[in-house]
Structure formats: structure tokens, C-alpha cells
Nucleic acid binder design. Structure first.
Length: 452
RNA sequence: GGGGGUAUAGUAUAGCCUGGUAGUACUACCGGCUCCAGACCGGUGGAGGGGGGUUCGAAUCCCUCUGCCCCCA
């Protein structure tokens, strides 16, 4: 994992390196409809397969967003960032599925399932509701009362092994097995919304921070390995479909010559409906080529093949898409961490406490007024400025004006802190009011299997 | 199935053998310096897994339970 140096003024370099190292893609701002503050400010800086989501959106097809919560501790600003993204996807038309990882919290943190439920509703869901998610389009469930996610985790476990877990998570011989099961159940969480019972085949996006990428990599790998048909880019242009023969589908796709031929006919029929005239099938080598297809066609071709796979009895799972956001700097200048209360603001923080935290937050100002006027402040490391950027100042022009004044030395650190405190005060106050006003809606967010 | 080790503050640890006010570092909190914060200087908090025993007195010795780690089969 790349270390992120919070002191570096040139943060983009680090994130560029992450993109390269993890094989992520940059976010195509121009293609994002109604870009949010996070997009405009490059806070959401990378993605995997976001194109699937954008295409589904453009076509008017359904798509979903998935997130989870671990019912332990308190919600803080780091959580707000994810919920803001979930809400944005919802506003663009996504259905929302939220997993309460109560099994995981129970196994690894020692909370009873009853405690998990209480904490999830009172601390987490209450804030989700307050932050404006739409109860009509949001389904919250508990891992413990949706056994299918455990079963999927079990089944998907066949596609990986301890060596991979060691490589991805650094697990070793002394690792508690609860930690081994958790990512598998989580893969079940992420993939199960595609099941017919939970909305059917459609792209699902998971917005996370880069530190969560290992989970996504695992989940995408597991889903991909179950696919009966692969879509790859041809060396000389177009797309190539290959058939993946495995124990599970051998009797269906490759029992004998006639069944193989039948499968190829179905593949050709499936892609024909997408409008490709030029289809070159080579059953002997197990490939179908679409020389005229473009990389963008990968999504509809993939969807057609997954639909075919399902009709043949396969799981037909689409790899989840993901987006990655930068982390706001912690209030003390280091990392933001829920286990260190002094590094963040809780969503139910008292106004006094919030003000105190900002007053003692790390600044990018100079040692004396004279020096500050002369040299100016550094907004890149200034907590008060960063929190306006990440959370509290919606207006780009206003933010830019503050940045200009701070850099020039016109604005002192103390004055900047006062601005941020006022913004945070307004936000926290409103959030508290919304929590109270909307508390009665909490049950509407719960899926049927999450009701008491 | 058998054997060994270990449990001290939010974190990392010292003290245990040889019983006598539990020490240190970071963190937290307060003050100084700073426009504010950091850095720096000064100060203040906070701890021996649970139960039992021995003893005037147990973190320390003994038993037991629990958790964690390791070895053998």
C-alpha cells in the first residue's frame, strides 16, 4: 500500500502513483452528469469500470450503488463523504443497497447482534436519513438476516485461497479466521444485489476510499472467475468473446460438438441483437470476434453475455464498479481515524467541542502575523481550508476567493478557522435538526428482511 | 490430544525471579510562546484480564477461569 504523506504539498503526485500502482482509471470529469463537489474538486480521483454505470445511466437502464457500515463507534466526517457520494448516485437514478456488517462486527468486535442493530439504527441510519437519502430508493439490510450473502461468500470462496488473502491482506498463520471469512461475506454483500430477487442484473458501484481497494479487487476477481464468457479487446481492434470452460459449466457449454455449436449460436444471437453485423465465430478455437466493436461496446456485450449465462443456469455476475476518494487530512495534521477522536469531527459532536477541535487544528499559516502577511499561508496542509474544500464550502467561487486570500496573506489562520467553524456549526446544527425531524422515517429505509 | 509462554494507562513498555506508595515514552488535558495550530518550554491526568488462596501487606508467590501467542502430535 502506498503511504500517503499528509505533509506533502503536492498531494496529486501520490495519488497519481496510486492510480498507476493499483491499475485504476482517472475520473473523466467531462462525462460525469451533474458533477458533485467531490468530482469538481478531484476528491473522487479514480475508478474501476465507472463507464458501466455512466453507460447504464445514459441509456436509462437501472444501476445501483452499494455501501456498507460496520456498527461500531461513532459516525464522523469520513463517513459523511461516502454517504454524500451514495446520495449523488441516488440522485442520478441509482437504487441504494446498504449492508449492515453485523456478522462481522459480532465476530471481530464482540458486539451482540442486538447491540449491532441498535447502534446501526441509532448512530448510522439516523444520520443517513438526516443526510437526505431517499427512503423510497434505499434498502438497508443486516448480514445476519440475509443468509444469501453468507452463502454467496461460501460459494465464492472456492475461487480464492489463503495465498491470495496473504497477498491482498497480509494475512498469516496467526490471523483469526473471522477475518478470513469477512471479505468473502463482503463479496456476497457487494454482488448479491444483482440476483433476480434483489433487483436483477445491473451494474453496481461501490464508492470507497483507496484503502478499501483490496476488498474490491478481491470481489471483482471472484466475480470475474465465475463468468462463463469473457470479453477481451482484440489486438487488431474490436472485441473478442471467449468461452471459459470450467467444472460448473462443462456439461452445458462443452459436452460435445453439438452442444458447443449450440452455445456459439446463442452467443451470436445475443450479440446480433446489439446490432453487430460483422461477427466472426470460430467454435473450434472457442472464440467469437466482433472486429467493429469499440471498447465502449464492452459493457453491452458483457451484459448480453451475462444474460445468456443466466439463461443457461450460470450465476451471471458483473464485476462491481468502484470509485475512489481522497482522504481529508485529520484535524491534527495526520491521518483521520475513528479511533482517535481528536483527528475528526463526529456527526453528533457538540458545537463547543467542534469549535475547540478546529481551534487546535493544524494550520498552514506562518509563525507570526508579519511573516504570514509577507509569505502567505499554505491551504494544502491547512486543516480549516481542507475541511472547507472537502465538506463545508459548496460554492467553488467562494472557496477560490478564500484560497486566494489565504495564499496572499490577506487572510490569517485564525480568521480562516473562524470561517470554517461557522460553516461547520451551520452544518452540524442542520444535521441535528434533520436527525430529529426524520427519525420517524428510519423504518422506511429498512428492507423487509431487516424489519423486526 | 499433549506441552510451553503471555495478559500492566488510549498505545508501546519497565518492574515480577528476591512481596512493601507501579516507572518511562508517545497520546490526552491545562498553561506559556504564536494571528491560530504545529514545533518548542512548563505543568496535570490516567493502568497490573476475571475469580479465589497465601501474607500484616500481592502487579509480583500459588490455584483457577478467560483471551491471545507458540511448539509437539
Amino acid at each position: 500500500m502506498v503511504d500517503i504523506d499528509p505533509w506533502s504539498s503536492d498531494v496529486s503526485t501520490d495519488y497519481d502513483r496510486i492510480i498507476q500502482q493499483f491499475g485504476l482509471s482517472s475520473v473523466p470529469l467531462a462525462e460525469i452528469p451533474n458533477p458533485s463537489l467531490h468530482h469538481r474538486r478531484d476528491i473522487i480521483f479514480a475508478h474501476r469500470d465507472l463507464g458501466n454505470i455512466l453507460q447504464a445511466h445514459a441509456r436509462g437502464d437501472s444501476f445501483g450503488v452499494m455501501t456498507g457500515l460496520m456498527p461500531s463507534g461513532q459516525m464522523h466526517l469520513g463517513h459523511k463523504m461516502v454517504i454524500d457520494q451514495v446520495r449523488w448516485f441516488q440522485e442520478q437514478g441509482a437504487d441504494v443497497t446498504i449492508a449492515v456488517a453485523d456478522l462481522e462486527a459480532n465476530a471481530t468486535r464482540g458486539y451482540s447482534l442486538a447491540e449491532c442493530r441498535r447502534l446501526a439504527l441509532e448512530e448510522y441510519v439516523a444520520n443517513y436519513v438526516a443526510m437526505g437519502l431517499d427512503p423510497e430508493k434505499t434498502q438497508i439490510y443486516f448480514q445476519s438476516s440475509r443468509p444469501i450473502v453468507q452463502r454467496m461468500g461460501f460459494t465464492l470462496g472456492k475461487r480464492t485461497n489463503l495465498s491470495e488473502f496473504e497477498a491482498i491482506y497480509g494475512f498469516q498463520g496467526d490471523t483469526n479466521l473471522a477475518h478470513v471469512q469477512a471479505p468473502l461475506v463482503q463479496a456476497g454483500d457487494i454482488l448479491h444485489p444483482q440476483l433476480e430477487e434483489y433487483g436483477g442484473l445491473r451494474p453496481i458501484v461501490v464508492p470507497v476510499g483507496v484503502d478499501q481497494d483490496p476488498h474490491l479487487r478481491l470481489c471483482r476477481g471472484l466475480a470475474g472467475k465465475t463468468n462463463w464468457f469473457n470479453v477481451i479487446e482484440r489486438k487488431n481492434g474490436g472485441l473478442r468473446i471467449t468461452v471459459s470452460v470450467m467444472v460448473e459449466n462443462q456439461s452445458i457449454v462443452a459436452a460435445d460438438k453439438s452442444s458447443t455449436a449450440a452455445i456459439f449460436t446463442q452467443i451470436i444471437d445475443a450479440v446480433k441483437t446489439l446490432g453487430y453485423g460483422d461477427i466472426m465465430a470460430d467454435a473450434k478455437h472457442g472464440i467469437v470476434d466482433l472486429p467493429a466493436a469499440t471498447p465502449k461496446d464492452r459493457y453491452p456485450v458483457r451484459m448480453a453475455l451475462l444474460t445468456l449465462e443466466r439463461s443457461l443456469g450460470g450465476p451471471g455476475l458483473l464485476q462491481p464498479s468502484s470509485t475512489y476518494h481522497r482522504f481529508a487530512v485529520g484535524m491534527t495534521g495526520g491521518k483521520m481515524s475513528s479511533s482517535k477522536p481528536e483527528t475528526t469531527i463526529f456527526l453528533n459532536e457538540s458545537l463547543d467541542k467542534m469549535e475547540k477541535k478546529f481551534k487546535r487544528s493544524f494550520s498552514g499559516g506562518q509563525s507570526t502575523v508579519e511573516e504570514h502577511r509577507r509569505i502567505g499561508g499554505n491551504p494544502d496542509v491547512d486543516v480549516a481550508f481542507q475541511y472547507l474544500l472537502f465538506f463545508f464550502e459548496e460554492d467553488d467561487a467562494a472557496l477560490e476567493e478564500i484560497r486566494r486570500a489565504y495564499v496572499s496573506g490577506d487572510l490569517l489562520s485564525g480568521e480562516l478557522k473562524a470561517i470554517t467553524i461557522e460553516k461547520a456549526r451551520a452544518w452540524l446544527t442542520e444535521l441535528g435538526e434533520m436527525r430529529d425531524q426524520n427519525a420517524h422515517l428510519i423504518n422506511q429505509f429498512l428492507a423487509d428482511d431487516a424489519q423486526n
